[in-house]
């Protein structure tokens, strides 16, 4: 017999998942097309990556040094708060990008007859690791100064390029499907 904590945990997970399924269904019923079947490129306009030089500037220690040199505690406080918000927004954007990559994969792969369990498991683990890293970064920025995670700027530039590449890949794939179905 399972214990009470296990039963409650099991019940809670099941309840949340089923509520999510029910909610997804009711959202789908209101919309003419279910979100899951809409091409991803249409609803991701808000995910346009920041230009690399822009992100590099946000995370640069130069601004912080400049503000510190003014010797104004109020300005320092304001700067710290603003930069933290921007850095957190960036982490949020990154985690959205990772989720988007995985969603593109699942939507493209679910029709395949040849899905491989091992490959899929590895991808899921990788995805979980990335989401964990994003969570860690979120905490790091909350607890430390954003300019200390300077590598973010380099990463943001690379990420924007990858997103552009991802969009291009998906467009090619979608065009290929349409071509196959039309022929």
């Amino acid at each position: 017999m399972i214990g009470i904590p296990t039963a409650l945990l099991l019940g809670t997970i099941l309840l949340l998942l089923l509520l999510f399924v029910a909610a997804r269904g009711s959202v789908g019923a209101r919309e003419p097309t279910s979100r899951s079947d809409v091409p991803l490129l249409d609803d991701e306009a808000a995910l346009d990556p920041c230009p690399p030089e822009f992100v590099a500037r946000i995370f640069s220690p130069d601004d912080w040094e400049f503000v510190s040199a003014t010797g104004s505690p109020q300005l320092e406080k304001l700067f710290r708060r603003e930069r933290k918000v921007v850095a957190l927004a960036w982490v949020h954007q990154t985690s959205l990008a990772v989720r988007r990559i995985m969603r593109e994969h699942t939507q493209a792969a679910r029709h395949s007859r040849d899905l491989q369990f091992v490959t899929e498991s590895k991808l899921v683990l990788l995805y979980a690791e990335l989401m964990l890293l994003c969570g860690m970064l979120f905490l790091a920025i909350q607890s430390a100064e954003p300019q200390r995670v300077r590598g973010l700027a380099i990463y943001a530039g690379a990420l924007s390029q990858r997103l552009a590449q991802a969009q291009h890949d998906l467009q090619t794939m979608t065009a290929g499907r349409e071509f196959h179905s039309a022929s």
């Binding site: 990154t94 990008a97 990559i101 990788l126 990335l130 890293l133 690379a158």
Partner: peptide, 10 residues
């Protein structure tokens, strides 16, 4: 790629 960049950042 994303993991590599994130690891670098961390």
């Amino acid at each position: 790629d994303v993991r590599g960049q994130l690891a670098k950042v961390v």
